[in-house]
Design a binder for these strands. Sequence first.
DNA 1: GTCTCTGCAAACTGTTTGCAGGTAC
DNA 2: GTACCTGCAAACAGTTTGCAGAGAC
Lengths: 144, 144
Amino acid sequence: MKKEETEKILALLKSEGKRLTSKRALVYQVIQESESHLPAEEIYLRAKAIDPNISLSTVYRTLNILKELGLVRELHLDEEHHHYELVGGTAHYHMICSQCGKVEEFKSKLVERLTEELEKNYGFETKSIHIDFIGLCANCRSKT
Amino acid sequence: MKKEETEKILALLKSEGKRLTSKRALVYQVIQESESHLPAEEIYLRAKAIDPNISLSTVYRTLNILKELGLVRELHLDEEHHHYELVGGTAHYHMICSQCGKVEEFKSKLVERLTEELEKNYGFETKSIHIDFIGLCANCRSKT
DNA sequence: GTCTCTGCAAACTGTTTGCAGGTAC
DNA sequence: GTACCTGCAAACAGTTTGCAGAGAC
């Protein structure tokens, strides 16, 4: 993990009277390196591969802290468990293939226009947006 | 529940070798009358008010069947439990107020345009769409 | 009469929490 | 040295399931 990032997180944690520990840095690193959304269990396994002492509770506790600090976002995809991804980077949304389960990301200017529309028509002030399209990916379509 | 609806459901159930029972009709009726998405627990409570003998397991079993038959949709809003709503009716999406928890529905032509865009750019064939805007509703905004 | 449904309680999965020892600062 | 952090096991919430009796067809 780069030094500037460590310091950003350290500052955030300190402002809440919390500490930066090796486990917390590890969890953050795993999420960051995946470049995609991961379920807690998977984060745990990847972290454990690096530090075999880490426990699942710590992963969950850390995820909740990172969530509170606004560093990590919790996704509710169409499954029974949650997924986590880094906040920051450009906003993006998901196309989920119901056949093979693959999750692709997309972005579109239309979403901004939709946000403006909701503001105008309903007076709604948007803070975050979740969009999931469920269907068939190009790959699975061509197989049919 | 109207006769034509009963018959639609009866036919669907029969085609799967299943039966139309009073409990199943009741669960369907509760969802239908709510005109909105309900968590399983709430469906259970409302059904129980009408038929005190119904159990939570039956509600869950029925929800799963209605889901398989394509009559009911399961939503993954930003909470720990699922919500259910009737399929059919016009497509709509959700604005969730993070302050008071109110869920409003909206629809927009922009969503269709987005669907076309994904088809064109990624070859993705959309079957269903979930959109949640999280933020402040007009009411909570004016209180600040 | 047969085969499906149901209620009950027990199991299961994902997540949270209490506690005693360990560690950052 | 003092909080805070951690692993462990136990608790928890939402959901599913096995079983024996009840009910649809």
